Simulated assay, not measured.
Amino acid sequence: MRTAPCPVMRTVDLIGDKWTLLILRDAFDGLRRFSQFQRSLGIAKNILSDRLAALVASGIMRTEPASDGTSYHAYVLTEKGLELFDLIVTLRQWGERNAFESGEEYRTLIDETTGEPLARVTYVRPDGRPLRRDETRLGDFRPIE
């Protein structure tokens, strides 16, 4: 829906499918090959093929020759795709707080430098003060530069 003036709607149109989000999660976790995604997700090959093709067509991923010299290719996040990191982390952190029962185990995302779980994603003003939802509003339409 290219005519929708809502960035959320356009983003959901591109990546709002369950399988697409899980493919992105796996790509951020280092998976690159079709067979790796298929094994990790247990997804039907035709669905995986469709979702990967859509991610490539939208410029979120690109294909490149496999590093092992085989005729296979790898799926790699582009700069556009890498910009989705905050979204994937935010979804993960929301799930940690809201989708598990007390005592259930899950794997946390760890900062390789500190060895600690990532701090909760938050939004701050330029002066470093936290920004709350009730301190925002929808602005006027403006063109993308």
Score class of each variant (00 low, 15 high):
Arg2Asn: 07
Thr3His: 12
Thr3Gln: 12
Pro5Ser: 08
Pro5Leu: 12
Pro7Leu: 13
Pro7Cys: 07
Val8Thr: 15
Val8Met: 12
Met9Asp: 05
Arg10Phe: 07
Arg10Thr: 02
Arg10Val: 04
Thr11Cys: 13
Thr11Asn: 09
Val12Gln: 12
Val12Ser: 12
Asp13Gly: 04
Asp13Cys: 07
Asp13His: 08
Leu14Pro: 00
Leu14Phe: 05
Leu14Arg: 15
Ile15Phe: 03
Ile15Leu: 06
Ile15Met: 03
Ile15Gly: 03
Gly16Thr: 07
Gly16Met: 07
Asp17Gln: 14
Lys18Tyr: 01
Lys18Phe: 03
Trp19Thr: 15
Trp19Tyr: 14
Trp19Ile: 15
Thr20Ala: 10
Leu21His: 05
Leu22Tyr: 10
Ile23Phe: 12
Ile23Tyr: 12
Ile23Met: 14
Leu24Glu: 11
Arg25Thr: 12
Arg25His: 11
Asp26Ile: 00
Asp26Thr: 00
Asp26Met: 10
Asp26Leu: 06
Ala27Asn: 03
Ala27Phe: 09
Ala27Leu: 09
Ala27Ser: 13
Phe28Asp: 08
Asp29Ser: 11
Gly30Trp: 07
Gly30Lys: 11
Gly30Asp: 05
Gly30Leu: 09
Leu31Pro: 06
Leu31Ile: 04
Leu31Ser: 11
Arg32Tyr: 01
Arg32His: 11
Arg33Lys: 14
Arg33Glu: 09
Arg33Asn: 00
Phe34Val: 04
Ser35Thr: 07
Ser35Leu: 08
Phe37Pro: 00
Phe37Arg: 02
Gln38Ile: 03
Gln38Met: 10
Gln38Asn: 05
Gln38Asp: 13
Gln38Gly: 04
Arg39Asp: 06
Ser40Cys: 05
Leu41Gly: 02
Leu41Met: 12
Leu41Asp: 00
Gly42Met: 06
Gly42Gln: 02
Ile43Gln: 02
Ile43Gly: 01
Ile43Asp: 01
Ile43Ala: 01
Ala44Pro: 07
Lys45Gln: 11
Lys45Thr: 08
Asn46Leu: 10
Ile47Tyr: 03
Ile47Leu: 13
Leu48Gly: 01
Ser49Pro: 03
Ser49Val: 00
Ser49Lys: 15
Ser49Gly: 09
Asp50Thr: 09
Arg51Glu: 03
Arg51Ser: 01
Leu52Gln: 10
Leu52Val: 13
Ala53Tyr: 00
Ala54Gly: 12
Ala54His: 13
Ala54Pro: 02
Leu55Met: 15
Val56Asp: 14
Val56Gly: 05
Ala57Asn: 10
Ala57Cys: 01
Ala57Trp: 02
Ala57Gln: 14
